[in-house]
Computed example of a mutant assay.
Amino acid sequence: MIQMAPTGLLTDFSLEMTGKDVPKLEEAAHAIPQGARVNVTFLGNEDLTMRVDAARVVKRLGFVPVPHISARRLKSQAELEEFLEALQQVDASEHVFVVGGDPATPEGPYTDSLAVIRTGILKDFGVHEVGIAGYPEGHPDIRTETLWEHLTAKSTLLAEQGLEQVVLSQFAFDADKVSSWIRAVRDRGIDSTIRIGTPGPAGIKRLLGYAKRFGVGTSAGIVKKYGFSLTNLIGTAGPDRFVTDLEQKVSAADEAAAKIHFYTFGGLLATAEWVQQYSAGK
């Protein structure tokens, strides 16, 4: 198959990996456009060395590393500074994504991502651009009003600090909700790039499991949007229908600043190949 350059929302798509996915990234490197952003997660079962090594490999392979900083997993400002310094040493600190993180109780001084940004130290370690989280379909544990208040506060603070920003959304399944959410982001004066979190091709059981974990949609709703049957959970579901619907609903004005970010579930090669197949089909 002749490889087609991604277009529309898939132009400059980004991918997500864990620290353990380095071999999978190396396997998929030939199918991922050079210069693509690759986010590196900040999980509880990984350590600083694993996260930094993954970011270093992303850079070595010709991609742009976007390490995550999980606020509630940080035990101290010293740990935050150690991580940022290590990233800077491997030339991987320019882009970061700051998120609250999973722990219900903070392990250190940072209750949320806003608290990390408020330290004002990111720029000291070569950070140029900060990703902040958005929730098109809401959050199971946080009021919608609070989500908007924090998004606006983080955007304002980053601008005051002279840092570029990207809004990266939790993964979504409902193109109508996503397009409405994009308009709401713009209505609040946030004109940065928006990366729409989208599940890459994944086993159907795994896809539904992640959706349940993050409180995104319902099984019935996901089935309707993705077009598979709950009576047959064997197989893989891809985001073809969601991406097609979203491209039809996002206005031309927003499309230039809206991109797709793939949560790959470890399937980096499968996701990169899906992009090529989808683009060729268009």
Rank of each mutant, 00 (worst) to 15 (best):
Q3R: 14
Q3G: 13
M4P: 02
P6M: 07
G8C: 05
L9K: 09
T11G: 11
T18N: 04
V22S: 14
E27D: 10
E27G: 01
H30K: 15
A31W: 01
A31S: 12
I32N: 07
Q34H: 12
F42A: 12
N45M: 13
N45R: 15
L48Y: 03
M50E: 13
R51G: 00
D53V: 14
A54K: 14
R60I: 01
L61G: 11
P65E: 09
P67F: 00
H68A: 13
H68G: 07
S70D: 05
A71T: 11
R72C: 03
K75I: 11
E82M: 12
F83C: 00
A86K: 08
L87G: 03
Q89P: 02
Q89N: 13
Q89F: 06
V90W: 06
V90L: 08
S93D: 12
S93N: 08
S93K: 06
F97N: 05
V99Q: 08
V99M: 09
G101S: 04
D102S: 13
D102Y: 13
D102F: 11
A104D: 06
P109A: 12
S113C: 09
R118F: 02
G120T: 09
L122W: 04
L122F: 05
L122D: 02
K123N: 03
D124E: 15
F125C: 09
V130I: 13
V130S: 10
P136V: 06
H139R: 10
H139I: 10
H139M: 05
P140S: 14
I142N: 11
I142W: 01
R143F: 09
R143Q: 15
T144M: 11
E145K: 14
L147N: 03
H150E: 11
T152K: 13
K154N: 05
S155P: 10
S155T: 12
L157Y: 02
L158M: 09
L158D: 12
A159W: 00
E160S: 07
Q161V: 08
G162S: 08
G162T: 05
E164F: 05
V167G: 01
V167Q: 06
L168D: 02
S169Y: 01
A172V: 08
K177A: 13
S179L: 12
S180K: 15
S180W: 10
I182G: 07
V185D: 03
D187H: 14
R188Y: 02
I190Q: 10
D191R: 15
S192I: 07
I196E: 12
T198G: 11
G203T: 09
I204L: 14
R206E: 04
R206Y: 00
L207E: 01
G209R: 15
G209E: 12
A211Q: 09
K212W: 00
R213M: 07
R213V: 11
R213N: 07
G215H: 06
G215L: 07
V216Q: 04
G217F: 00
S219M: 02
G221C: 11
K225M: 00
Y226S: 08
G227K: 03
F228N: 01
T231G: 10
L233P: 07
T236D: 02
A237F: 04
G238T: 14
D240Q: 13
D240P: 04
D240R: 10
F242W: 09
D245T: 07
S251N: 06
A252M: 14
A253N: 14
A256K: 15
A258E: 08
F262Q: 09
T264H: 06
T264I: 09
L268A: 07
L269W: 01
L269C: 07
A270T: 05
A272E: 04
Q277F: 00
Q277E: 14
A280C: 02
K282S: 01
